[in-house]
């Protein structure tokens, strides 16, 4: 998987939820399409899970099914009490993973 895009505020206020946006390149092959050349169904190959951790603790996660659009985009909220590291992990049907980390400064 390609390098994901992640948007988090550089500085956040302690205890105040802030929005996180993530976007990753993936075809999200639904398993419903047919290969026109062969007549065979194209096997499902999607990102099926996304997890966001703050200093190792899961703060938000999502289970994705084939109806999530190609190049999945997710927006959600996180709250932090102290500066730390956000870790983002995407996993697809082949077991392939993509990760990203962002340091957030709590003021």
């Amino acid at each position: 998987m390609d390098k994901p895009r992640v948007k988090v505020p550089q500085k956040v206020k302690a205890g105040e939820p802030f929005e996180v946006k993530v976007l990753i390149s993936h075809t999200m092959e639904s398993g419903q399409r047919t290969d026109e050349a062969t007549g065979q169904k194209i096997p499902r190959m999607i990102i099926n899970s996304f997890t966001c951790k703050l200093d190792g603790e899961v703060v938000f996660s999502a289970t994705l099914h084939p109806a999530v659009s190609a190049n999945p985009y997710l927006a959600f909220y996180v709250v932090a009490d102290k500066s730390g590291e956000l870790e983002f992990v995407w996993v697809d049907d082949s077991g392939d993973t993509a990760t990203a980390t962002r340091t957030i400064e709590v003021t």
Partner: peptide
């Protein structure tokens, strides 16, 4: 500019 998938 973030939600726009073209920026990938």
């Amino acid at each position: 500019e973030f939600a726009n998938p073209g920026y990938i």
